[in-house]
């Protein structure tokens, strides 16, 4: 399958990736290979096969509505690149 420049550009925007021209060419090839590989499935007749969303035949795994987590803010914020006033401090973002 041929991946166009427009597709790579669009996927780049969605993934927030800024690729150089060389990286774009490589990405086009890689993506094309992947899609070709997966397109092998098109050879099968899946007309009456239900779409699968999960690899294991398991359903209805629930939690009871009981608070099990306490305040672990210090640990949680230890993962933040920047922290201030008990919050994650991130570059200015607008709605």
């Amino acid at each position: 399958m041929v991946i166009t420049d427009e597709t790579i550009y669009y996927v780049g925007i969605l993934a927030k990736l800024f690729l150089s021209d060389e990286e774009k060419e490589q990405a086009k090839k890689d993506m094309s290979n992947m899609l070709d590989y997966v397109s092998k499935l098109d050879e099968l007749d899946t007309e009456n096969v239900e779409a699968m969303s999960h690899a294991f035949p398991v359903s209805n795994v629930f939690r009871e509505d009981v608070v099990t987590n306490g305040d672990d803010r210090e640990n949680m914020l230890a993962n933040a690149p920047e922290e201030r006033n008990g919050c994650y401090d991130v570059p200015k973002t607008f709605d």
Binding site: R84, G86, C87, Y88, D89, V90, P91, K92, T93
Partner: peptide, 8 residues
């Protein structure tokens, strides 16, 4: 600070 503070 011209940053955004996030509370989860």
């Amino acid at each position: 600070t011209d940053t955004s503070l996030v509370d989860y």
